[in-house]
Design a protein around this nucleic acid. Structure first.
Lengths: 177, 177, 177, 177
DNA sequence: TATGAATGAGAGTTCATTCAT
DNA sequence: AATGAATGAACTCTCATTCAT
């Protein structure tokens, strides 16, 4: 589809090439999309929609820690398994290509994740800091790990992934004052 | 200078506008830069050069923990104090605008930071995990905090900054097996 | 079509003017031609293609001399009747505008002319000198005559054209040692 | 000096390069020349001036034929010995780069050649055709020969040069009605 | 619905020329 | 006289978008 966009960058991907790749005429695309930017936004929305589902999938029974680590791994594995999605979010899904309005609109896909985090804070499984800091940091550690792998700086074998999960958990787990 | 680029994106900033903003003629710019991309790369290099110096500036005497936290705060404060630099690195300093070759070339500015981290691992002040994971995560937590502030999601008052520093340190500090 | 090019020179004829003259938009031209140079090359090829046909058209029965003179007149008349083609070949169809590769590619249009000349040498109707010298000189005398006319230095009435034909023939006709 | 112009074409040779080649600043050039075109015209004039002198140099005593052939060889050898001058006259010294006014102005350098030709007609050594046709054809045969050599189509050894001289002479020599 | 030729504003870049030093 | 930084008009070419078919 639009791996073109990921590989070449939005501005280096003319509509004519998009059309050719899709085996349709340029005009056809404009039947279904208002303009080029809308296509990008559509892709962004599609990927965003995945998130909420993917992150909370198959969380194990048991301790909050186990659940959190499973969720973190879900995120890590999703990005590792969908490098195009990862690169798209990293390089394309940023202003000014994706406006903050669009970004806000996709936050709703995260409500379940947010609720999960919030419950962790309330149950004293997670640090008593602002929810958004917890979320951002959790997202950040996962992205850090994926980056190392996608840039081939680290192979991210089983042990290294485990290190990363540990780091993630230690960064957010409850800490008594 | 080129806050234009930060505000509008590289591709949305024509040379004509850059020239007008700088109060020179378009041609003049081409006396000093080969082409548009070189300007971007030059800015990238300039900001990169700052990093190594800024991060290691005024580290306090005392424990490794104190030093690490000071370094982390240096990074955080630099980005908060230079929002243009932050946005530039986040949104412009990515492929395909900045090639990986250019990125590699600027790694040398980080050798002192790398050495500092390495010494922490060896002295058992930092986790015994891959150096690059430590660095990426440290960078990541700082970026997470800056993002929250720059997007006005959190005010990042003194307490919140302290929370972030704690999180950062807990994520990388030594952990006996 | 591109009499503009002939009248003003290639470099003095911007694409915008070409487009306006053709009553189309600039972009339209770029649907059909890769770039400006390709247009020039296309014109060059078109004119070249004419040559082989025009020169050998309607050669009379009879002596070789008669045939040669008819051929020479074909060339002369073609250029006189197509002053744009003449000027194009004289002023535009030269390096570095037309690369030697393009020129070589169009030589094939002359094979019939070349064969005609060669047969004249073998039948001892033409001088026993290198074929290419014969061809170049024949072309040269015709061009000389056309130049005199196109620059209005001579009216080239019937008598003067006959003089030129005679000169051409005498320059290449067989000469016993 | 401006072999640059010959090698690259006028329009592909920026003044900055001309200046660098001459080891002066661009501004300096504009002290001595009005503009770029004037430089070209100056070169054209210089080469033109040579002509009248070169062509009539060292003509042997004896028959008109001998003199003519010597003159023709002078022209041929000049161009072969000065390929830059040849290429300049062929590719640069044409409209619209060199205006017809400039060309006319340089005709005066040929008056001695013209007189020589005219005397040949009057003495019945040359054909009784228009003087300008004689001159143009003489020039044309020489150029044809030089072209074959400069394009490496023919080596133009002694025999081939002799052939070319013979052709030239036969094309213009007197022919009784 | 689907096409793709046509559009033309606007991009990056060049370079002849000027002029303060 | 000599410099070369500065100029900006003008160039070639791109590409998102339109619309007649």
């Amino acid at each position: 589809m639009l791996e073109l966009v990921v590989e070449q960058g939005v501005h280096a991907t003319p509509m004519s090439q998009v059309a050719k790749e899709a085996n349709v005429a340029v005009g056809t695309i404009y039947h279904y999309f208002e303009n080029k930017n809308q296509i990008i936004e559509e892709i962004y929305s599609m990927i965003s929609k995945d998130f909420g589902v993917v992150l909370m999938a198959n969380l194990p029974e048991g301790s909050y820690k186990k659940k959190y680590q499973a969720m973190w791994l879900n995120l890590y594995n999703y990005f590792v398994g969908n490098p195009l999605a990862f690169k798209f979010m990293e390089f394309v899904g940023v202003p000014p290509i994706i406006t903050s309005e669009i970004r806000k609109r996709s936050i709703k896909n995260f409500t379940n994740v947010r609720d999960f985090m919030l419950s962790g804070i309330l149950s004293k499984d997670l640090r008593d800091v602002d929810l958004r800091l917890i979320m951002q940091v959790s997202f950040g550690t996962a992205v850090s790990a994926v980056r190392l792998k996608s840039k081939n700086e680290l192979p991210m074998d089983e042990k290294q992934v485990q290190d990363a999960v540990d780091i993630a958990w230690d960064s957010v787990k409850y800490k008594p004052v």
